[in-house]
């Protein structure tokens, strides 16, 4: 990682208008996400926070009719809608963790190794072993699963499966991790583990997390963006958002007037 990289924001969104078919779901978004910080997106259901997140690794391409109407998203300084962007490379550098943990119906080892195996550059077995171990350690899962790497990933608990998904994303060597409500399907204890993990991971990774849970946002994030009905209402340091929101709507939302 060199310094010139760090001076540019990790993700930069400029005047983004995003639509599904004719329906505009994001309007005029401007946002800069800094390196090695945790940024939380909060907002009521359907406000567009997930859409925004999916626009960062162009997973939104999968939805028929989804398109950027105007503006652009720059990741690591590169406009990702340009034709010379290879989406597979983009998605390797911008990892993603989903709301519902979704390990593949394969062994634990194969789950972590998947990203490497589909890479165009082949790697040797020992190198692969090293990457799998490092990733699992980084996701704080190694000690729990090291003896049963060849068993099915479905044998793990929900929290473990979600951490496996994080390990899977880390194995690709990403710069940025997108997390789409990673704890929504987990019990409080597992949630805590994940939150700890996020704090540990931000040393190395830029993390963007979508959450419904405002306590979670205060616990893990450095900055928070509040979206409402497709608009970015407020984006600032988490402390400021939760203690001295500038906008009335933000205040109403965080005090639980609507959700």
């Amino acid at each position: 990682m060199n310094n010139s990289d760090d001076q540019k924001p990790a993700i930069e969104v400029e005047d983004l208008h995003f639509a599904y078919g004719e329906k505009e779901v994001l309007r005029n978004i401007n946002l800069k996400i800094r390196h090695r910080e945790v940024t939380a997106f909060i907002g009521p259901s359907g406000c567009g926070k997930s859409t925004l997140l999916h626009a960062f690794n162009r997973l939104s391409d999968l939805v028929p009719g989804a398109r950027i109407k105007s503006g652009c998203v720059r990741v690591l300084g590169k406009d990702i809608s340009e034709p010379d962007v290879d989406t597979t490379q983009l998605r390797k550098k911008v990892g993603m963790v989903f709301q519902k943990y979704n390990p593949f119906p394969k062994s634990i080892y194969e789950n972590v190794a998947f990203g490497i195996r589909v890479d165009a550059n082949r790697r040797g077995r020992s190198e692969l072993d090293g990457i799998v171990e490092r990733s699992l350690r980084r996701a704080a899962l190694w000690d729990e699963v090291k003896d049963r790497l060849d068993t099915s990933a479905f044998g793990l608990s929900g929290g473990q499966q979600q951490r496996l998904c994080i390990a899977r994303a880390i194995a690709n060597g990403p710069k940025i991790l997108l997390m789409d409500e990673p704890c929504a399907a987990l019990d409080p204890l597992s949630t805590l583990r994940i939150e700890q993990l996020i704090t540990e991971l931000k040393v190395d990774y830029t993390i963007v997390i979508v959450t419904h849970n405002m306590n979670q946002a205060t616990r893990v994030s450095d900055r928070t963006a509040f979206l409402y009905m497709g608009d970015l209402v407020e984006y600032d340091e988490t402390m400021k958002i939760f203690q001295r929101p500038r906008e009335e709507r933000t205040r109403a939302y965080i005090s639980g007037l609507f959700s």
Binding site: N102, F114, G115, V118
Partner: peptide, 8 residues
Amino acid sequence: SGALALGA
């Protein structure tokens, strides 16, 4: 989507 998000 999991596989695609991993760069497959």
